[in-house]
Design a protein around this nucleic acid. Structure first.
Ligand SMILES: Nc1ccn([C@H]2C[C@H](O)[C@@H](COP(=O)(O)OP(=O)(O)OP(=O)(O)O)O2)c(=O)n1
Ligand SMILES: [Mg+2]
Ligand SMILES: [Mg+2]
Length: 834
DNA sequence: GCGGATCAC
DNA sequence: TATGGTGATCCGC
């Protein structure tokens, strides 16, 4: 079983059997099944290995022996005993930080984590068998007094930065293997250090026990007593005595490492352990040898090294885990010494790389030279939740994960990745990954969500307990754009979530309701004050959508609210519209196109704006598009933007607002996501007539409702109210006409592609529409698609459209926030090669 | 390129 | 009640 292995420091002679028993007794059926399944596979593999060993012919064995001996000779020739490598590893790191900051925890068994999962435990708790990666509730059974402390990763990162700076003084190329582990090449420093060095030491006494290290009574000498300083602790209000003296550190690598460790403790109050050897790999092993708060030096001598390795259990070697250990055990190998002795077995059983890797460990040599780039290769976000097969719950989780990933991209200066991978963990704990490499860089939240949703959609129906999304084959941002992205990507996502929250709040209020298109597919919905209604966009209603804007000061960008995103003038200049459409009392309107001719151009402001992709990161951030900064025009994608709609709907609109929907787009191109779907204006929000009717404002009175094109109706749940409005009354059911409105002048046209397209072209030529705004130039066919979108080619974009609708028309309920569980967030580099 | 596995921390 | 998250690498297709 996977339950208990005793690789780590801190074991007493405690009953291993008893621990194992308690663990198995408390393990759930599903997890137990999973463990057994895995164990079974392992045993099968072991059988295979054993049978392979038996079946090997003499010739095979001889060949294997020869091959390994040759390899050994090659490797031996590269042995370098001239360098001094150090691995420093903090003791019970997360736990130690918590114990430092809360003295109460110093004397009791404790662990960092939750009842679900532990990050680590202190040494007192380890005596009970409580350790990292163990569920907290099982740990509690092993040790009922165990105190659980939630993790604080920012704090651990901060402390980590503090002590890593010390190491950097000894080796500017030092690297951190994790928050608590440093790899330091002190060769040069050792050579340069010719004289001993004295360093000040502070230790603490008195009633205050906040500061570490605390001096022991027997350590207080007369001279220390003479120079002590007392002060009042700001935290516990008790008296603190500071004893200060000097400590001398000599020359040589062991002394230098003692000095580093000393300085770490002085700076942080935390202890660490270190290993010193001729390679990083050996130093790493050595760092565990005198843990906690100790160090071990392995001389740079071949014989000493081989002797050290002879009886070393293979599991102590970094890189040999539970499974490799079992495989090697199947070959009769338990110690590194065995590895060397039985090396002739390797070619019979293991891959070439494994053979070399094993031989290198057996000889105490450095790891294989690393292959180039130290850059990050992937970025991912994953989260475990209560296992479910509920589509909506899963989609919510998925969307949040994508948002986090998008934010992380920005934070880490990453533009995007070529490959996206979806990871699922089923309720059975089985893990699946599904990946996709479209022809283009995945950069925007929409693409992250859209592509991973495609992968997810195929797996729905299973009971899932974890979703993860990863981008790999990364492309990084320029220096300057990193700064922009760092700040903006997060706030953009937050904006959208705030907008969704607000929308939901409004929708729950009695003063608002959700109206949804009934004839469009997919549907579009909008929160509307109950004092207003939505009329379909038809030739008779369209003119109401267009009202004159006095100046650019009216643009939403002028809003003081930081949560209001608006269109900037140049990128969002909306389409030209007639400014003087005026309904008659009967609801009849003068012709829009005539009005346009007789009046200066005006703009209208729809509740959702369609923003043209821009090339500059700065301008993008100012309009808040949901795309990664530095995206060039060619790969960026236009976005639906809210203007004031989500946040300002609380004020009854004084002018009609246009409701847009997104038609299915032509997907013939493989570049599905670079051409934005055209927007189709499909409705207008009007106020019900008030009493008395305002005379000045044309737009507060509704037009006659004559059209029967797209219908907006309240969802069933909301129609029962005693409103004067019921959607069925106001907007009678559709009877399909054979006409379609021109999207520009709203003239009713025969439903015929040729006629419609010609008319639209004419309209465009009249300059009624700035086609660089609502229709990006690259997609010059868009206006036609706005009318004719029935023959959409297929699926992929359809799902992306649905996603647009849920995300941007804000139909999804605001999801519950689930706090990420205990984890170490910083990535770990490969152990340095030397 | 993909999917499963292993490993570290 | 309850078994993590992030990143890397390797193997065998
Ligand atoms: N499965 C794991 C292992 C470790 N960690 C975190 C918590 C540890 O405190 C930190 C460092 O890991 P170590 O392996 O160095 O373990 P500790 O420092 O806790 O103990 P030790 O004294 O054995 O080094 O990483 C984790 O989150 N999950
Ligand atoms: Mg440690
Ligand atoms: Mg460590």
């Amino acid at each position: 079983m996977l339950t208990f292995s005793d690789n780590k420091a801190g074991m007493s002679g405690l009953d291993k059997d008893k621990i194992t028993k308690i663990i198995t007794e408390n393990t759930s059926a599903s997890y137990s099944n999973f463990s057994q399944k895995k164990q079974q596979k392992l045993e099968e593999r072991i059988k295979e290995i054993k049978s392979r060993l038996e079946s090997a012919t003499a010739a095979e064995r001889a060949s294997a022996q020869k091959s390994m001996d040759e390899m050994m000779e090659d490797l031996e020739s590269e042995r370098d005993l001239t360098r001094h490598y150090v691995c420093v590893d903090m003791d019970a790191y997360f736990a130690a930080v918590e114990m430092r900051d809360d003295p109460r925890l110093r004397t009791i068994p404790m662990a960092v984590g939750s009842t679900s999962m532990l990050s680590t435990s202190n040494y007192l708790a380890r005596k009970f068998g409580v350790r990292a990666a163990m569920p907290g509730f099982i740990a509690k059974k092993l040790c009922p007094e165990l105190e659980l402390v939630p993790g604080n990763y920012k704090k651990y990162s901060k402390v980590s930065r503090e002590f890593s700076q010390i190491f950097a003084e000894y080796d500017p190329d030092m690297s951190m293997g994790s928050l608590d582990e440093a790899y330091i090449d002190i060769t040069e420093f050792v050579e340069e250090r010719r004289e001993p060095r004295k360093i000040s030491r502070k230790r603490f006494g008195g009633d205050c026990i906040c500061r570490l290290p605390i001096i022991k009574p027997e350590e207080i000498t007369e001279s220390l007593e003479g120079s002590k300083i007392t002060e009042k602790c700001a935290k516990c209000q008790k008296e603190r005595i500071i004893y200060e003296d000097l400590v001398e550190f000599g020359v040589g690598r062991a002394e230098i490492v003692r000095e580093m460790r000393f300085r770490v403790e002085q700076a942080t109050g935390l202890t660490c352990s270190a290993g010193i050897a001729s390679t990083f790999r050996l130093a790493k092993i050595c760092s565990d040898f005198n843990k906690p708060n100790g160090q071990f030096e392995l001389p740079n001598d071949r014989q000493e090294i081989l002797h050290f390795l002879k009886d070393l259990p293979i599991r102590k070697v970094s890189g040999i885990g539970r499974v490799s250990e079992a495989h090697l055990q199947a070959c009769g190998i338990s110690t590194v010494g065995d590895m060397l002795e039985k090396r002739a077995i390797f070619p019979l059983v293991f891959s070439l790389l494994s053979q070399e890797s094993f031989l290198r460990t057996a000889l105490g040599l450095r790891g294989r030279p690393s292959s180039g780039d130290p850059k990050r290769k992937s970025v991912s976000v994953e989260r475990t939740f209560g296992g479910t097969s509920d589509e909506n719950l899963l989609k919510d989780e998925h969307r949040q994960i994508c948002e986090y990933l998008f934010i992380d991209l920005g934070k880490n200066g990453i533009r995007g990745g070529k490959t996206i991978t979806l990871k699922l963990k089923l309720a059975s704990f089985d893990v699946l990954t599904r990946s996709l490499t479209p022809g283009k860089l995945i950069t925007s939240l929409e693409d992250i969500y859209g592509f991973s949703m495609e992968l997810l959609a195929k797996e729905l129906g299973q009971e899932i307990r974890l979703i993860g999304v990863r981008l790999s084959q990364l492309t990084f941002l320029d220096e300057e754009n990193q700064e922009v992205a760092k700040k903006t990507q997060k706030s953009v996502v937050e904006f959208w979530n705030e907008a969704k929250r607000k929308r939901r709040e409004l929708a729950e209020s009695d003063d608002f309701r959700i109206l949804t298109t009934s004839s469009e597919n997919p549907t579009t919905s909008c929160v509307v004050p109950t004092t207003h209604y939505i009329a379909p966009m038809t030739s008779s209603t369209a003119p109401f959508a267009f009202y004159k804007m006095k100046s650019s000061g009216d643009l939403p960008t002028s809003s003081k609210s930081p949560m209001t995103f608006g269109a900037r003038s140049t990128s969002s200049r909306a389409i030209l519209t007639p400014s003087k459409a005026s309904p008659t009392s009967s609801g009849k309107i003068s012709s829009p196109s005539k009005a346009a001719k007789s009046s200066p151009r005006a703009t209208y402001r729809p509740p959702f704006m369609y923003i043209k992709p821009t090339s500059s990161a700065a301008s993008m951030s100012s309009v808040g598009t949901l795309t990664s900064s530095e995206a060039p025009v060619t790969s960026s994608r236009a976005m639906l933007m809210p203007s004031t709609a989500p946040t300002k709907c609380s004020e009854a609109p004084t002018s009609p607002k246009v409701l847009f929907s997104v038609p299915e787009a032509d997907t013939s191109s493989e570049d599905l996501f670079s051409s934005p779907p055209a927007l189709k204006p499909s409705g207008i929000i009007f106020a019900f007539p008030t009493d008395p009717s305002p005379s000045g404002d044309l737009f507060t009175s509704p037009p006659a409702i004559t059209s029967s094109d797209d219908l907006f109706t309240s969802p069933p749940a909301q129609t029962s109210s005693g409103d004067l409005f019921t959607s069925s009354e106001a907007l009678p059911t559709s009877s399909n006409t054979e006409k379609v409105p021109c999207p520009i002048c709203s003239l009713q046209l025969p439903n015929d592609d040729v006629i419609v397209n010609r008319h639209v072209d004419e309209c465009l030529n009249k300059g009624l529409l700035y086609n660089d705004v609502i229709i990006p130039k690259k997609t010059s066919t868009s206006p036609k698609k706005m009318l004719k979108n029935k023959k959409a080619k297929k699926t992929v974009t359809k799902s992306s459209i649905e996603k647009f609708l849920t995300d941007f028309h804000l139909m999804t309920p605001f999801p519950k926030l689930t706090s990420p569980s205990t984890a170490l967030t910083s990535g770990r580099r490969r152990l340095p090669v030397n």
